[in-house]
Amino acid sequence: MLRFKNTTVSYGKTEILKNISFSLKQGKFTALIGKNGSGKSTLLSAAAGLLSFDGEIFLKGRPLKGYSSKELAQLRALLPQLLPNASLTVERLAAMGRTPYLDLTGRLKAEDREQVETAMEQTDVLRLRDRFLSELSGGERQRAYLAMVLAQNAELLLLDEPTAFMDVEVTRSFLKLLRRLQKEQHKTVLTVFHDLNAAMDYADELLLLENGRLCFSGSAEACRQSGLVEEVFGVTRKTREIYQ
């Protein structure tokens, strides 16, 4: 689905990602972990085609640079870390997820409306549909943006700390939703997690970044056994499987 081949991303002369190579299989849930400043958000932005890079990135076997912005938006959706508090209602925000499928008039067709309704239902924001983003709590706003991302109906979901403002209960139901989407609709998910327990217990695969270099790519179990997490983060993992 997604393949990085000797990819380097720089801001000016500073290399943020250094010679990264990995591939994500279709329908897998992959967690991207690493300390602050290790390049996780940059990797997601590069995968989304929002940054220039050296080396190659392939999406569905085609070079990322070969896609038009509209084609790309129909294949992958990105939920960044910082979500603006725009003057929009939840329903309008969710409807914006259909932008890649609309012509310049922006008129939603019946199919688009259906996708928007489904996305709002999946993220449990139907009752908030007429509320403005500024009237929502951090967790509710996060879910409203997730509705937009799901309405985009892309095969690859790139999520940057999607559960950052959610409480335990909402986090659990959201992770269940991602798992359902992954299994039923074969979505490929690449998400940044700061919660190591959630990442280890939940994801099929893990990518571990340290100072812009990929130091592990493989199954969660293999990562657990390697002891790399403890080495990189300097912590011992004791709590487990709270999200199951």
Binding site: L82, S87, T99
Partner: peptide
């Protein structure tokens, strides 16, 4: 004509770009 695309700008550059704008 471009009204619906201009609306997306309020979501910030990253989100708007990810929507194909």
């Amino acid at each position: 004509l471009f009204g619906s695309r201009i609306d997306c700008l309020s979501l910030g550059d990253a989100v708007a770009s990810s929507l194909g704008v």
